[in-house]
């Protein structure tokens, strides 16, 4: 059987809220080392990869590898019934056709149980190669969310260019153009406001803002977002959850036709 308990149930809620508009359904794969998901959006332009480590849970038991297919909209409906402070326990029997979610309030006065029907989902699993990236940028997650939102009111695509000491986001549209530059800033009083750039090679790539805006729904998960870029490769947009795991988004670049 599979059983996992997470005290910060709000985390699970945030993860599902971050991906539910991008992917319709997905298999949640559980094994000894943890809980993971990989899924593409319906246009096969982007890929979501979630991994939550077994030791990030208070209790974790997985007797044999299980793959549980769920419709994200339905999972979201159920998790919305959990309080942000609730502990959440997930439970499923081997070869079971449901997964049970138990929500416990911090004072343990209220205990709720919801069963979600599992589904068979055909999903193509892609191999994500280990890569050394030309540039890695770590910036406050809220800052990135604001940039992609602001640029979306001007254009549909963004060119992200990274040099040694700055990252630039630029767009052009019918009404005009916009450029936002963030300088490297490591030595701030508040570490959550730092911007760090690690570069092997200057790089500039163009991406659809619609997807980046969707990825930015993961902002509540982490103080920072990490962007990894290489010439002619998908961008990686990563949110790390300390001691628990990571939510990564991969987006194929736009090309000149």
């Amino acid at each position: 059987m599979f059983e996992a308990r997470i005290a910060q149930g709000g985390l699970l809620k945030k993860v599902v809220e971050a991906i539910k508009d991008l992917i319709e359904d997905a298999n949640f794969d559980c094994n000894n080392s943890g809980f993971s998901l990989q899924a593409m959006d319906s246009s096969h332009v982007s890929l979501v990869a979630l991994s939550l480590r077994a030791d990030g849970f208070e209790h974790y038991r997985c007797d044999r590898n299980v793959s549980m297919g769920m419709k994200l909209a339905n999972l979201s409906k159920i998790l919305k019934c959990a309080g942000n402070e609730d502990a959440i326990t997930m439970k499923s029997e081997d070869n079971g056709d449901t997964i049970t979610f138990m929500f416990e309030t911090p004072n343990q006065e209220r205990l709720s149980e919801f069963d979600l029907k599992l589904m068979d989902i055909d999903s193509e699993h892609l191999g994500i190669p280990e890569a050394e990236y030309d540039a890695t940028v770590k910036l406050p997650a809220g800052e990135f969310q604001r940039i992609v939102k602001d640029l979306s009111s001007i254009g549909d695509t963004v060119e992200i260019s990274v040099t040694k000491d700055a990252v630039k986001f630029g767009t052009t549209g019918d009404i005009g153009s916009a450029n936002i530059m963030c300088r490297q800033n490591k030595s701030v009083d508040k570490p959550e406001e730092s911007t760090e750039i690690d570069i092997n090679e200057p790089v500039a790539l163009t991406f659809a803002l619609r997807y980046l805006n969707s990825f930015a729904k993961a902002t509540p998960l982490s103080t920072h977002v990490v962007l990894k870029l290489s010439k002619d490769l998908p961008i990686v947009v990563e949110y790390h959850v300390p001691d628990v795991g990571r939510l990564g988004f991969y987006l194929a670049p736009k090309v000149e036709e």
Binding site: S43, V45, L47, G127, A208, L251, P253
Partner: peptide, 14 residues
């Protein structure tokens, strides 16, 4: 104009 590539072009099926 700019074309959108598919993510499957970059990551092989596993």
């Amino acid at each position: 104009s700019r074309g959108q590539r598919s993510i499957t072009m970059f990551f092989p099926g596993g």
